[in-house]
């Protein structure tokens, strides 16, 4: 019963969120809040996507930037070749991200803990090098993109992207929430706590890790897809910037990984602080703030924000950070 009621509350919250976002794009004239808000939404979706493998399963992925960049360049290549609309670009990016997640998962998920993390760092470097030498999408110099005309009911492309990213957040959170409450989630949690014990009880560990890696990868790439249109420009060193990996990881850990709300809270806190500082002081200070916050949380609240809020999760959220 309570589960059912929780679901109603959740989807009502989602509906209110989307309506609020949509009405904001219709009412607010100034474009700046959408510019800043887009980035925060992007990080919420990235952090939630990251936590599906990094949080639930405890497999720390340093390759967020690889998936994000693949999303960016799938959209760029598709747009340049066929002029496909944004929705198609995002769907294609998700498909490519999922395929990449499957391939990477198959090759690396047999490795445990730190070895998996190291392998994912290499992944971004390999793909970035490949894109740098791909003339069609501009190579190392990058590529300028002309936005197509905006669609109704939006009056500016940035507002539309803001709404699209909000939808991606809802999709990411919906999937993460579903996984958390499902048998997949319980299996992932079991293998995070003790992989051997999970195997003994019949949890298909490799299969579940692969599924988590594919879903996480698909979401990360989908989140990256609109970035090229947002900036009207793409270049390999920004699309594959390690900051995406560090941010997604830090936001998840600061928020707490035992519940989907953790990465959301972490990304809102860290993302808005960074946006605020970028305007008031300088965007250079972002990495410093991220580092300081991470240190503070690791010392004072190792289970993240949700660990402070719910004592039960403090016990649950253990395992590998």
């Amino acid at each position: 019963m309570t589960k059912h009621r929780n679901s109603i509350a959740f989807w009502a919250g989602v509906a209110i969120f989307l309506v609020a976002v949509l009405s904001m794009t219709q009412i607010v004239r100034n474009e700046y809040p959408f510019f800043a808000g887009y980035v925060i939404l992007q990080f919420i979706a990235l952090a939630v996507a990251w936590s599906i493998l990094g949080g639930y399963a405890g497999y720390v992925n340093f390759g967020t930037n690889a998936f994000f960049g693949v999303g960016v360049y799938t959209a760029v290549a598709l747009f340049k070749a066929t002029g496909a609309p944004l929705v198609v670009q995002i769907a294609a990016a998700a498909a490519v991200g999922m395929t990449l997640g499957f391939g990477v998962g198959l090759l690396t998920l047999r490795m445990r803990g730190i070895f998996f993390s190291i392998a994912t760092i290499a992944l971004a470097i390999i793909i970035e090098t490949f894109v740098m030498n791909w003339r069609f999408v501009g190579g190392a110099a990058g590529i300028q993109l002309q936005r197509p005309p905006v669609m109704a009911p939006f009056d500016s492309y940035v507002k539309m992207l803001f709404f699209v990213q909000a939808v991606l957040v809802v999709i990411a959170v919906g999937i993460a929430r579903y996984i958390q409450n499902s048998r997949i989630g319980r299996g992932l949690q079991a293998l995070r706590d003790d992989e051997l014990a999970a195997e003994c009880t019949g949890v298909p560990t490799l299969k579940l890790k692969l599924v988590a890696c594919m879903i996480s990868g698909a979401l990360m790439s989908a989140v990256g897809a609109p970035a090229a249109m947002y900036l009207q420009y793409a270049d390999p060193s920004s699309a594959f910037n390690l900051t995406y990996s560090v941010s997604a990881l830090a936001m998840s850990l600061i928020g707490g990984t035992a519940h989907w709300i953790g990465p959301v809270l972490g990304a809102i806190l860290l993302g808005s602080t960074q946006q605020f500082l970028a305007v008031t002081i300088s965007s250079e200070i972002n990495v410093l703030v991220l580092g300081i916050m991470l240190v503070l949380f690791v010392v004072a609240a190792p289970k993240g924000i949700i660990g402070l809020l719910r004592p039960r999760y403090r016990l649950r959220a253990g395992g590998k950070p």
């Binding site: 051997l196 014990a197 195997e199 003994c200 009880t201 019949g202 016990l315 649950r316 395992g319």
Partner: peptide, 21 residues
């Protein structure tokens, strides 16, 4: 391992290996 569990084999691992949390 999961298919072997389905066949009706179960292992109580050394050192118990429970999920402590």
């Amino acid at each position: 391992p999961e298919m072997i569990v389905d066949l009706g084999v179960a292992l109580v691992p050394e050192g118990r290996r429970l999920f402590p949390k």
